[in-house]
Design a protein around this nucleic acid. Structure first.
Length: 792
DNA sequence: GCCTTGAAGTTACCG
DNA sequence: ACCGGTAACTTCAAGGCG
């Protein structure tokens, strides 16, 4: 019988000594099924001195005998492009692979054991080109369904499923959002002590809340579990659920001697790779993982992220002080507010999922990691899995992870900007510069020619400055991988042109081209990452070297044409927009250098200071770009960011810096008079390490210490919000106080905010126009003149 | 011993 | 655990001056 199904989750188990890959999915007729394949066995490769001589095989056979060896075979593969003979050792049981590997690695003629660390179900998917979040056709026969399994049918695959690559449709997935609230009378909730007072669940139909009876959460756990079972979602989404909700619920369940059997095999969520919890048969997605990649949102609370993505506006939802959740629970009159808050969290989470899942689905199908893992995996791991997939298709062995020392290499060029306001400026960009460089010059670990090796000079590309050589032929690994990605993206972008932007097809393909771009662009960074399997410093180093050459030659030619080069960074040049000359420049880059460039944008006005990577520009439609400046940084007080934004707007739109001065003075007055929201004075900074590891007493570290003393749990990675107060010493750090402990504007060190926040942010723009601090503060001329003289 | 100065530590940005 | 380049802040200690 033939079956088509869309793969949601993949796992395996060993049944009666036989490993069984289980592919959980949704059929064309919307049934939930699992397709099992019992025909696949784990294996790994052994790279030996003699390429698998009889004697070597005998030794390997003996070493592997205790681990259920099924067979040894000498196979031809490629290792960094070079043909090699390796011994493929096939075992019966995936669980014995790690031990077997160790046993073989000890043999003295064994150079390396390869691919022994690839998880069994991933091995299965890679080898059979089975892709998660994609449709497959498979020949099956139906099996008896174990009574505890939550599926419509269980099938046995006669052969591995075949990917239907051209069909990017997505079945109607049942998505369940959830969120829990815990009792926190004693600070950070502790599952050993504090119950789950509310568990909210929701989908497109609405939200349901399960509540504790007083402080007994047994009903919450029970009802939550049965709700999941009954609604049988394909995707379960939470916010920070891998780090909080799931471990908490599991700990509560264990304490209450009950079980959280929410999976499709009636098992509990289990800690799995990349710190995520795996729920058999479903995709357990933690949207916080996605939020971490949205750098525009500085404080990544659910409500901020939901607002940013246009899901639920902050003023359309209930917000309460999370530290007081217990009080809302204890007080019957306030409890409805807490319930609304919980409901809004679930709504936001569900809304977020609608925005984010389509991208995750495409990413999952491209890199080949199951949907829930792709969210949890780091960028490096995503790229790596994509490469592992490709390596298999090219017959390349996957290199092992090795511990390496950290090495640096030169990166891109950044030009010194020409300070001031420039009108009519075109920004010309190389399209996907690094991927295209790697393709054009065939830069790859397997094409690299080490210094000692003799090669005819016209057979290699030689990187400028650094001199690394790469064979022109055959196409290297990175080249093939990147060409495929860029080509796929081009095709999709072509298709998009003919589609209605409101249609579901458009959405899917749009997200797909975005995912392709993300992976292509991250591949250069990956190759220079010392933790990468395919790391090669020379590869990364040559790529940036060619990048420098390209930008230099582009700038040279622009100047030759008589264009003024105002700025440039890595793969972009800013020139005065003379359409004819710009056209010639583009032609030059395309024809002489062989790279694609495009006009990315044209600024009506753009303003630079002397600093690199910081500018602001006005576009024809009235929008303003702010790049690198304080206004777009998360570690400046809102008040300074607002001031700078407004100053930029006045300067660019009205061209009157002195009007901006008046505005700044007004804000300073408001601050002095105390009519400013405390919220606007909060400075947020990330704790990038554990609190004990800091060498200096930075303000946010001191604020964090105060929080710790007040009983808050402080963890690396947290954003600390503080306000600088008066008194308490010279150092800013001695005056920094956690923002919510500051109750009155009277406590605030207004002077700090004026002199170290507002003035610097404003002057960053205004000092170019001859405006100085004394023009913004003080007001009285005498004082400023006096200060001026004193400075000299 | 006080004040200036610059290095070091730290964070967050750009592409 | 993707890269290097960059600005700018705060702290801290060395160095200079008296």
């Amino acid at each position: 019988m033939k079956l088509e199904f869309w793969i949601l989750d993949v796992n395996y188990d060993v049944v009666g000594g036989v490993p069984e890959v289980r592919m959980w999915g949704v059929t064309r007729d919307n049934r939930r099924v699992v397709v099992v394949d019992r025909g696949f066995r784990p294996y790994f490769y052994v790279l030996t001195v003699k390429g698998g001589s009889e004697e070597e095989l005998e030794h390997i056979r003996r070493a592997l005998a205790p681990y259920g060896l099924l067979g040894l075979e000498v196979v031809e593969k490629k290792y960094f492009g070079k043909p090699v003979k390796v011994v493929k050792a096939t075992l019966a049981n995936p669980r014995l692979v790690p031990k077997a590997r160790e046993s073989v690695a000890r043999l003295d003629f064994v150079r390396e054991v390869l691919e022994a660390d690839i998880r069994f179900y991933m091995r299965y998917m890679v080898d059979n080109a089975v892709y998660p979040s994609s449709w497959h056709a498979v020949d099956v026969e139906e099996l008896d369904k174990p009574p505890s399994w939550k599926v419509d049918a269980v099938y046995l695959a006669k052969k591995p499923p075949v990917h239907i690559a051209e069909d990017r449709s997505v079945p109607e997935l049942r998505v369940l959002a959830f969120d829990i609230e815990c009792y926190n009378r004693y600070g950070e909730p502790d599952p050993e002590r504090d119950p789950v007072i509310i568990a909210g669940v929701g989908d497109s139909g609405g939200v349901r809340l399960f509540t504790a009876q007083g402080l007994d959460d047994a009903p919450v756990l029970r009802e939550f579990t049965s709700h999941v079972k009954n609604t049988d979602p394909d995707v379960i989404v939470g916010y920070n659920s891998n780090r909080f909700d799931w471990p908490y619920l599991l700990a509560r369940a264990s304490r209450k001697r009950t079980r959280l059997n929410v999976s499709r095999t009636n098992s509990q969520p289990a800690q799995s790779v990349y710190g995520h919890f795996s729920i058999v048969g479903r995709a357990n997605v933690d949207l916080y993982d996605y939020a971490e990649e949205i750098y525009e949102v500085k404080v990544k609370s659910l409500e901020n992220v939901a607002e940013y993505l246009g899901v639920v506006k902050k003023d359309e939802r209930t917000l309460i002080d999370a530290n007081l959740i217990y009080a809302y629970w204890d007080d019957e009159k306030k409890r409805p507010l807490l319930l609304r808050y919980a409901e809004d969290d679930v709504r936001s989470t569900y809304g977020l999922a609608e925005k984010v899942l389509p991208f995750g689905i495409e990413l999952s199908s491209i890199v080949g990691l199951p949907l829930d893992q792709v969210f949890a995996a780091s960028v490096g791991n995503r790229v790596e899995w994509h490469l592992i997939r490709q390596a298999f298709q090219y017959g390349e062995l996957v290199p092992n992870r090795v511990e390496r020392g950290y090495e640096t290499y030169r990166g891109a060029i950044v030009l010194k900007p020409k300070p001031g306001v420039h009108e009519n400026v075109a920004v010309i960009d190389f399209s996907s510069m690094y991927p295209n460089i790697m393709i054009r010059y065939n830069i790859s670990p397997d094409t690299y020619v080490p210094p000692g090796e003799k090669v005819d000079s016209d057979e290699v590309w030689v990187a400028p400055e650094v001199g690394h050589r790469f064979r022109k032929k055959p196409p290297g690994f990175y080249k093939r991988v990147l060409e495929r990605l860029l080509e796929a993206r081009r095709t999709i972008k072509e298709k998009l042109k003919g589609l209605d932007p409101g249609s579901p097809e458009y959405r899917v393909l749009y997200e797909r081209q975005r995912a392709l771009k993300v992976i292509a662009n991250a591949t250069y960074g990956y190759c220079g990452w010392s933790g990468a399997r395919w790391y090669k410093r020379e590869v990364a180093e040559a790529t940036t070297a060619w990048g420098r050459m390209l930008i230099k030659r582009t700038i040279e030619y622009a100047r030759k044409l008589g264009l003024k080069v105002i700025y440039g960074d890595t793969d972009s040049v800013f020139v005065n927009y003379d359409p004819e000359k710009v056209e010639r420049l583009i032609k030059f880059v395309e024809e002489e250098l062989g790279f694609e460039v495009k006009i990315d944008k044209v600024y009506v006005k753009v303003f630079f200071t002397e600093a690199k990577k910081r500018y602001c520009g006005l576009l024809a439609d009235g929008r303003i770009d702010v790049v690198g400046l304080e206004a777009v940084r998360g570690d400046w007080a809102e008040i300074s960011k607002e001031v700078q934004e407004k100053v930029i707007e006045i300067v660019l739109k009205e061209g009157d810096p002195w009007k901006a001065v008046e505005y700044v003075k007004k804000v300073i007055e408001e601050l002095r008079s105390g009519s400013v929201d405390l919220e606007k004075l909060v400075i947020w900074k990330t704790l990038t390490k554990d609190i004990g590891e800091y060498e200096v007493e930075a303000p946010h570290v001191m604020a964090a210490k105060q929080l710790q003393e007040a009983g808050y749990r402080i963890r690396r990675g947290m954003k600390i919000g503080y306000i600088v107060t008066r008194g308490g010493g010279e150092k800013v750090s001695s005056r920094a106080k956690p923002f919510f402990l500051v109750k009155d504007i009277g406590e605030v060190d207004v002077d700090y905010y004026i002199k170290r926040q507002i003035v610097p942010a404003a002057l960053r723009i205004l000092s170019y126009f001859g405006i100085r601090e004394e023009h913004l503060v003080g007001g009285r001329r005498q004082a400023s003149l006096f200060e001026f003289i004193n400075q000299k």
